[in-house]
Amino acid sequence: MTTALLVAALLMGFFGSPHCLGMCGGLVTAFGLSMKDVSPAKRRGLVATYHLGRLLSYSFLGLLAGLIGTTVLEPLMMGNSMPRILLGLVLVLVGITMLGAPFLTKLERFGMRFWQFLGPLRQKVFPLTTFPRALTAGLLWGFLPCGLVYGALLIAVVAHNPLGGAALMFVFGLGTVPMLVATHETVGWMRDKIGRFRLRQLNGVVMVLSGMAVMFVPIIMANMHGGHGGDTHMSHGNPAAITSEAGGSNHHDMSQMDHSMHNMDTDADTMNHSQ
């Protein structure tokens, strides 16, 4: 798990939270109405408690996703570049989803069935007047179907690290907290700023580019390094070998010169003897 993935998960949660507010907003409203007779101080504690439960639920799901990646995917992709390529593809998929593509709607439908199955248990936590009930409500909230959550879980799967997957989902949940605990006026201001500057779409573009970089930059760098390595070999060579060859060539030339001088001396002696 890298810092870059954790930052991506945090931004994904923050910039995607206006979209999730449509579904989570009703739940937050229901929680608030169930605490209308609670003192303001205890109310703040209960709100913090059920958000803690939600983050713990996300972390548990991230742990499961990381285990799936470790036990199922990793043995199939050892010794090759598939882990990097799969991570890049998931980042591209999540980025396109943040741009508005409905790729994860089928997962949301499946999650809705499970959410409805939890209906009787959800009814038992109301009203949220005690901390155990608030914690339980937060734990159940983590299973609310959301395409953005499923996208983060896909990243946790390809991260191939259970603890890293848990950390990624916890950080993703932290990114959604400001929008869900803000007052009505603050929520309107945040949604306006995120919508006006298209920060969700911008984050989606960044994730798409990041995924493409994860897939293709190592290949491009490897090709460039390979070509540069060949040129280096041709242009520079082995200094020791060059020195050895130069030394050998010089030694051969000196030997030839000595042999020629010896022949010249012999010829001179022969001429003197003849005279």
Score class of each variant (00 low, 15 high):
Gly66Phe: 12
His51Trp: 14
Ala182Phe: 00
Ser260Asp: 13
Leu5Cys: 01
Leu52Trp: 10
Phe117Arg: 15
Val171Leu: 12
Leu139Arg: 05
Val125Asp: 03
Leu89Phe: 09
Met98Gly: 02
Phe114Ser: 09
His252Cys: 07
Leu55Trp: 03
Leu104Gln: 10
Lys42Ile: 11
Phe103Asn: 06
Leu91Ala: 05
Thr29Glu: 08
Thr130Cys: 00
Met169Tyr: 07
Met77Cys: 13
Ile155Ala: 14
Arg44Asn: 15
Leu46Cys: 08
Ala182Ser: 15
Thr186Leu: 10
Asn272Leu: 13
Leu148Asn: 08
Met12Phe: 11
Phe197Asp: 03
Asn161Tyr: 04
Arg191Ile: 03
Gln116Leu: 10
Ala152Val: 00
Val214Cys: 03
Gly16Ser: 11
Asn238Gly: 00
Met264Val: 11
Pro162Glu: 11
Leu73Tyr: 14
Pro102Trp: 12
Ser39Thr: 14
Gly151Gln: 00
Gly69Pro: 03
Ser17Gln: 05
Ser210Leu: 15
Val157Arg: 05
His259Cys: 02
Ile155Tyr: 09
Val171Trp: 10
Ser244Trp: 13
Met1Glu: 03
Ala240His: 08
Val90Ala: 10
Val28Gln: 01
Leu118Phe: 14
Met98Val: 02
Leu135His: 09
Asn250Met: 12
Gly62Met: 04
Pro162Trp: 12
Ala137Arg: 02
Gly227Glu: 11
Ile220Asn: 01
Val171Gln: 08
Met215Gly: 04
Met254Phe: 15
Leu64Glu: 02
Gly195Ser: 11
Asp231Cys: 06
Val171Tyr: 09
Met221Phe: 15
Glu74Gln: 12
Gly147Lys: 06
Gly88Met: 05
Val90Thr: 12
Val28Leu: 15
Pro162Ser: 09
Ala167Asp: 01
Leu121Gln: 06
Val214Ile: 14
Pro83Ala: 13
Thr71Met: 14
Gly62Cys: 04
Leu139Ile: 05
His236Gly: 01
Val7Glu: 03
Gln201Ile: 00
Gln256Glu: 07
Glu108Ala: 10
Arg133Phe: 05
His225Ile: 03
Arg84Glu: 10
Phe216Val: 12
Asp192Arg: 15
Thr29Tyr: 02
Ser59Gln: 01
Pro127Ile: 01
Arg198Asp: 07
Ala137Lys: 01
Val7Asn: 05
Leu135Ala: 13
Arg200Gly: 02
Leu209Tyr: 10
Leu107Lys: 02
Gly111Phe: 00
Gly164Arg: 04
Phe143Thr: 11
Phe216Gln: 06
Lys42Phe: 13
Leu5Ala: 14
Leu61His: 06
Phe114Gly: 12
Ile85Tyr: 15
Asp192Cys: 06
Ala30Phe: 09
Leu76Ile: 02
Asn161Asp: 14
Lys36Phe: 05
Gly226Lys: 12
Gly164Trp: 01
Leu128Lys: 04
Ile242Phe: 13
Thr270Phe: 09
Ile219Trp: 12
Gly88Leu: 03
Cys146Arg: 06
Tyr50Ala: 05
Pro127Arg: 05
Met190Cys: 04
Ala268His: 12
Met257Phe: 13
Phe31Met: 06
Ala8Pro: 00
Leu52Glu: 02
Gly147Asp: 11
Ala137Ser: 10
Gly16Ala: 08
Val149Asp: 00
Phe31Tyr: 07
Gln116Thr: 07
Ala166Tyr: 06
Val217Ser: 01
Ser244Phe: 13
